[in-house]
Computed example of a mutant assay.
Amino acid sequence: MREILPALSRWYADGAPFGLATVVGVSGSAPRDPGAALAVGPGDVVVGSVSGGCVEGAVFELAREVVARGEARLETFGYSDDDAFAVGLTCGGEITVLVRPVTRERDPGFGAVARSVAEGRPVTVATVTGGPAPRGAALAVWPDAVAGSLGTPGLDVAVTADARGELALGATGVRRYGPRGERREDSVVVFLHSFAPPPRMLVFGAIDYAAAVARLGAFLGYRVTVCDARAVFATPERFPAGVEVVVDWPHRYLRGTDTDERTVICVLTHEPKFDVPLLEEALRRPAAYVGAMGSRRTHDDRTARLVEAGLTPAALARLRSPVGLDLGARTPEEVAVSVAAEIIALRWGGTGTPLTATGGTIHHLERGGGPGAG
């Protein structure tokens, strides 16, 4: 939902009701993950997607209906081969979508949620999807505040505790409770949608390849920083808008920067005096991906230097070098696609093999390490 929040914020600020459809459950080869959203606003304007096109028309009509009636709906869409024109998923999976009306009166905390997401502050939105509690009721939970209610104080307390736990992990999913928050009961179904701050992509080396990687990183939802010790190259004008540019020695900058299990580190400096101390630091800290540009000869030389620096085989095994998948890339933009493809494959457990040469499910179970939910 993160990408459609600017439009939702405008509608909300104008006091215009809108229908918000959110994927709250998936199974099989579903096209979108939980948290994917579509909204229908004033003048039947549509933003977002819940299925990549399969059931958007039906969801559009549902969204208009819930706004008119003021009542939330829960619908499940699966595969249908009985009628070529039936509403269903062509991919063979199944999605469950909660469609609810959003107004200032019903959702007094929505504006604060939208601002938090835009500013990169963590927040979880808990929404009732089934059971005796009011369907569509929402509770926004921050690390130090809450807004809204799910119907009973006990349920609010239990969900708040769980939402903060999920928020720390950046996780999104379903929890079940009793009507007053009893944890041994499962009559009330609550969807917890966590908006963790975007993960970081750290690109070292202010070269033309770095500009292309930075563009794709921002497109994939990362907060991108480019760092180079050479001030003549590390200028904001050479990189996309919104990308942070830092002039510093790469290893020194990384040493003073927080990373976590979602952070992506791309070393494109292609110079041993920068690469070796930087990779020594990168491979000793948490990160989802550490990739380094260079030929196989460069890789062998770097590896020998890192061994001399005391890195273990386990640490060296984390290094993706030469960086990227074998796509036959030549231009900076093509190389950036190769790097992005490797990052995505590592996150989801993909192989990089053409799908025509594989069998079974297309979508892999989440392994973590990528952009935050929403």
Results as ranks from 00 to 15, higher is better:
Ala84Leu: 15
Asp144Tyr: 06
Thr160Trp: 03
Asp186Tyr: 02
Thr90Gln: 12
Thr331Ala: 09
Gly109Gln: 07
Ala196Asp: 00
Val226Phe: 06
Met201Gln: 03
Gly294Ala: 10
Ala315Trp: 12
Arg262His: 15
Leu98Ala: 10
Arg318Glu: 11
Leu216Asp: 09
Val123Asp: 01
Ser27Gln: 13
Ser29Val: 05
Ala58Gly: 15
Thr257Ile: 07
Thr263Phe: 05
Ala314Met: 13
Thr358Ala: 14
Glu237Asn: 06
Val247Arg: 05
Ala140Tyr: 06
Pro240Ala: 05
Phe18His: 03
Pro42Asp: 10
Phe191Thr: 12
Arg238Glu: 02
Glu280Phe: 05
Ala37Trp: 04
Arg305Gly: 10
Val59Tyr: 07
Pro122Arg: 00
Ala39Tyr: 02
Ala145Met: 01
Arg284Trp: 00
Gly368Trp: 04
Gly294Asn: 08
Phe233Trp: 11
Ala231Phe: 08
Val157Trp: 06
Arg305Trp: 08
Pro250Ser: 09
Glu366Trp: 14
Arg367Thr: 04
Gly256Arg: 14
Leu8Cys: 06
Pro236Ala: 01
Ala68Gly: 12
Phe191Ser: 10
Leu89Thr: 08
Arg252Thr: 13
Arg104Trp: 04
Val339Leu: 08
Val47Gly: 02
Phe239Asn: 06
Arg69Asp: 15
Leu216Ala: 08
Ala315Met: 15
Gly93Met: 08
Glu280Cys: 09
Arg32Gln: 12
Val146Met: 02
Val224Ser: 08
Gly217Lys: 13
Pro354Ala: 05
Gly25Thr: 05
Thr129Arg: 09
Val40Asn: 04
Arg64Asn: 04
Thr103Arg: 02
Arg252Ala: 15
Arg100Asp: 07
Ala84Trp: 13
Glu105Val: 06
Leu268Gly: 13
Val203Ser: 02
Gly53Lys: 09
Thr298Tyr: 10
Ser29Asn: 15
Glu281Thr: 13
Ala218Lys: 11
Ser295Ile: 13
Arg215Glu: 15
Tyr289Ser: 00
Ser321Arg: 01
Glu334Thr: 09
Ala13Pro: 14
Gly324Met: 00
Val290Asp: 01
Ala112Phe: 00
Leu268Arg: 13
Arg318Ile: 13
Val157His: 11
Pro179Ile: 13
Gly368Glu: 07
Ala336Met: 11
Val226Tyr: 04
Ala288Arg: 03
Arg223Cys: 12
Ala287Trp: 00
Asp33Val: 11
Ala161Cys: 04
Arg318Lys: 14
Ala292Ser: 12
Arg347Pro: 02
Ala309Cys: 14
Arg106Cys: 03
Asp258Ile: 03
Arg302Pro: 04
Gly28Arg: 03
Ala241Gly: 11
Gly165Cys: 07
Ser27Lys: 10
